[in-house]
Amino acid sequence: MSSPARRITLKDLARELGVSTATVSNAFNRPDQLSPALRERILGEAKRLGYRGPDAKARSLRTGRSRIIAVILAESLTYSLNDAVSSEFLSGVAEVLDTQGHTLLLLSARQAKCQLVDSASMADGFIVYGLMPSDELFDSLPLNASLVAVDFNVAGHPSVHIDNEPSCFEIADHALSVKSRKRPAIVNLRLTETPCNGRVTPEHILLPPERTITRARLSGFYRALEKHGLDSEQVPMWNVEENTFDVCAPVIEEILDLPDAERPDLLLCMSDRLALTALTLAEQRGLRIPDDLCLIGFDGIAEGQYRAPRLTTIRQESGDKGRLAARMILGLEPRHSRLLKTELILGETCH
């Protein structure tokens, strides 16, 4: 009986090709380090000889590195992959990890703690995205773990943010300048300490600024209102618990179905999804945009720019946030906190 054929190794392949073992390793793990022609030659020869690539387990034991980067999402995986903003962010992260030969591991802070801890133990570093439900999450991560926070602050670690307060001031100031509006209102996103999918009352306690970026957006709106002589305390606010049409719709319907004398003539919305939901429901009711109702959003998602009327909004480059966070966690960018700029997009929903 013949003995089984010996498994070809990385050294065997390097010898066959007349290149170094590091060059072969780069062809599988760091393709950006090689010319496309050389990488194709190495991969072609590897396939012919039956070599499937470096043994990940052996490499991890040898180097103490898994080449896995975990993104911990504040929301569920289903929500995050369907949401236009978070999916653009994840695409930016994946783009960098792909070129650097790393693997992306997606985790949700809403998973059971034991599940999260077991999965997190495999990662070399962590990118934390969004408002975490509890700080206890960070106690369960490996000691001295590399971590970058995005749209959220974690003590002792760098963060990536956009200029939320100045951006909201700029767009609200524009909305209040183009035409006199007597009944502005604000539609918030997850701003109250206890769940509230409806009108915000004096009994509701708002999350503190360090817990959510929506407080910075609210501050920007308030500053613009005060500039135009409006008492921000008298401007009605509604809160939405999840940035989806199904959850937004009942809140927006409540607003639009108010008597004519009470219905807002300007909605300052903290996301494009909120504004687009309002736009759809307003059109169903025969309201003219922007004559009867002026709308502004925030995010700059493609959907808001591909329909008529185009949404007036703030464009944030979520893909750039993802790319920057990934480069920081890999040590390709200095690990200090960054504040990214945004862009005011003047559409037809507020002019």
Rank of each mutant, 00 (worst) to 15 (best):
Asp135Phe: 06
Asp118Asn: 10
Asn82Met: 14
Ala58Thr: 11
Pro133Asn: 11
Ser108Ala: 09
Pro36Ala: 09
Leu116Phe: 10
Tyr79Thr: 04
Ala58Gly: 14
Ser108Ile: 08
Ala58His: 10
His102Asn: 13
Glu136Pro: 00
Glu40Asn: 08
Ser121Thr: 09
Ile68Asn: 12
Glu136Met: 02
Ile127Trp: 09
Ala70His: 08
Asp98Arg: 14
Asp32Val: 06
Ser91Phe: 10
Ala27Tyr: 07
Arg48Met: 08
Val85Leu: 12
Thr78Ser: 12
Ala56Pro: 00
Ser140Leu: 15
Ser86His: 08
Lys47Leu: 10
Pro36Asn: 08
Leu73Lys: 05
Leu77Val: 07
Leu61Ile: 14
Ala74Asp: 04
Glu75Gly: 03
Leu61Glu: 10
Glu75Phe: 11
Leu49Glu: 06
Asp139Asn: 15
Ser35Thr: 14
Leu107Ser: 01
Tyr79Val: 03
Ile127Glu: 05
Ala84Trp: 13
Ser86Met: 14
Ala27Trp: 10
Ala37Pro: 02
Ser140Lys: 08
Tyr51Asp: 07
Ala27Pro: 03
Ala84Pro: 11
Ser66His: 11
Pro31Tyr: 07
Tyr79Ala: 05
Leu90Trp: 02
Ser86Gly: 01
Ala46Ser: 14
Met122Pro: 00
Cys114Pro: 00
Asn26Glu: 07
Ala58Glu: 15
Asp124Val: 03
Ser60Glu: 15
Glu45Asp: 04
Ala94Asp: 13
Arg39Trp: 06
Ala109Asp: 09
Pro133Asp: 07
Leu61Asn: 08
Arg62Ala: 14
